[in-house]
Each structure stands twice: as structure tokens, then as C-alpha cells.
């Protein structure tokens, strides 16, 4: 997942930007996603309190409806976390999810928004730090997007 915008540097701790990042909804799958978040919790790893996790059965269950529900109701960005390749408990849910999010990003771009409002990552149940890194990545990408194009509310 690369964005033409990432590559700029923007300090997400910049007060003005930080004030705009309040609600980040992350859908995490029941297997690896939830496992990774639990592992991160047990290890007391810290991340931004703006992250809110929603448990779903499989990352393949997350569709445009869920993503737009989040964005329409105040979320600043949405993330989808599925199992790493080859490990999906339901075989190919994570792959479907990857394709779906990729299409959504293209759609956002077509509509003139930043394509960083929705992102997809993979997780491994025992690797809490990877997921925490992904959360930080989410905040960074959003900060750059806000700096360049504004929040999704501004663009609405």
C-alpha cells in the first residue's frame, strides 16, 4: 500500500494536526487481528488513544458499508487488519479484503479525497508490536493527508 503523498514528513504531534485526529476506527479480525491487539495489550505497548478497535469475524467481512458508516459518523480514518497471507482462518478473507480496500482507495482518489482515509494491514497474533507499528503508521499517514488535503470533514 503506497501513497503518492507519503514521503512527506509531517509531525503528527503537531498540535493543530493532533486536534483533528480523534477517532480512528480499526476493524480487526477475530483470529490474528484480535490476537495481535491482545498481545500488544498484554505487553503494555502504548499507542494513540484515538484508535478504537471493532472486532469482526474476518477482515473479509468488512465492506464499504462498514467503512462509510465509520467515516460518515465522525471517524477521521478507517483501518482494516486481517491475518497475514496464507494464515486466514477462512482461507482467502484477507486477500478479498486487500483487493477491496485497494479499490476503495482508488475510489477516494477519483472523488478528490486523499486515499489515506482507509488502509489495510496484516497481522500475526503473536506480534503485538507489528500492529502497534501499524497504528502509528495509520496516524502518520492521516497526518500527512490532513496537512495536504484536509480532513474528510473538510472535503465533504
Amino acid at each position: 500500500m503506497t501513497s503518492s503523498e507519503v514521503g512527506d514528513f509531517c509531525d503528527p504531534m503537531d498540535a493543530e494536526i493532533k486536534a483533528k485526529i480523534k477517532n480512528l476506527v480499526v476493524f480487526m479480525c477475530n483470529e490474528c487481528g484480535q490476537g495481535a491487539a491482545n498481545t500488544a495489550g498484554v505487553a503494555r505497548m502504548g499507542y494513540d488513544a484515538a484508535i478504537r478497535i471493532v472486532r469482526v469475524q474476518c477482515s473479509g467481512q468488512v465492506g464499504p458499508i462498514q467503512i462509510m458508516d465509520a467515516l460518515n459518523n465522525g471517524a477521521d480514518a478507517v483501518g482494516v487488519v486481517g491475518c497475514c497471507l496464507g494464515a486466514c482462518h477462512f482461507f482467502n478473507g484477507n486477500i478479498l479484503s486487500m483487493h477491496r480496500i485497494k479499490l476503495m482507495k482508488k475510489l477516494f482518489k477519483e472523488l478528490g479525497y486523499s486515499d489515506q482515509f482507509v488502509n489495510q494491514w496484516t497481522a500475526r497474533a503473536a506480534e503485538g508490536e507489528t500492529s502497534v507499528g501499524d497504528f502509528e503508521d495509520m496516524v502518520d499517514r492521516l497526518a500527512v493527508a490532513i496537512k495536504n488535503k484536509g480532513t474528510i470533514k473538510d472535503g465533504c
Binding site: V54, L71, N73
Partner: peptide
């Protein structure tokens, strides 16, 4: 999916998103 319908997930998502519908 029972207990995981779009409707039920939306109910869970709305408070987590901040709750202010702006679109």
C-alpha cells in the same frame, strides 16, 4: 450474518467514530 449484521455493526461503529454524522 446473525449478530453481525450491517445494522448491528453500524450501531457499534457510530459511538466509536465520534457520533457526529456530518454527511
Amino acid at each position: 450474518l446473525i449478530n453481525f449484521s450491517d445494522d448491528q455493526l453500524r450501531d457499534e461503529i457510530i459511538p466509536l467514530s465520534g457520533g457526529e454524522a456530518h454527511c
